[in-house]
Design a protein around this nucleic acid. Sequence first.
DNA 1: CATATGATGGACT
DNA 2: GTCCATCATATGG
Length: 198
Amino acid sequence: MKKKFSENILDNTFYKREADKVAYDLLGKMLVKKDEEEIVGGMIVETEAYLGPEDPACISYRKRRRVGKNLFGDPGEVFIYMVHGNWLFNILVDKKQVPAAVLIRAIEPRYGLDIIMRRRMVVGIALTNGPGKLTKALDIDKRYNGYNVSDPKSPLNILYYKDISNIQIKRTGRIGVKEDLNTPLRFYIAGNRWVSRK
DNA sequence: CATATGATGGACT
DNA sequence: GTCCATCATATGG
């Protein structure tokens, strides 16, 4: 099982592209975490792209540049950020030294459901249908800053799972941002019940 | 040290 | 849809 996981890990060239393209292509991929001996994780069903210094919603924008110092890392690196009492799980993307990221907003649980339910103390779609919920479900916090999801030794990985070329992807504006761009930068799998909002 | 700030979640109308 | 508790950071005194 573990060997199969490592064979399917997306390599870091996947992340060396513009944030909106990576956000789109992450849908239908598998996010897994090695949790002690067990594997927890699920299929990514909702993402948002944050484009960098030119994007008013991005942490690397203007005054918030200090907050975004961790945004200057290699593509594929994990970037964790606290908002409203919730840890948000991001992956650095684009060329090196471009402070852009993709936020993972929702997953469909596939591994370690019993562990996830114990941590969340709920059942059903509320387990992982939001960016703060999924980090609680997978026990992700700032300890995981700096790991690279393309590195087989990392506790967090993203795997190829299935072809999504026949699945309908919807685009909307980003949720909860103070100042969004005109381009819709939120992506989700149409009809998937684990998506946070329609 | 004090306070303002959210890329939220959950309870409620 | 609205309201507000939340809490790690950033920033200013």
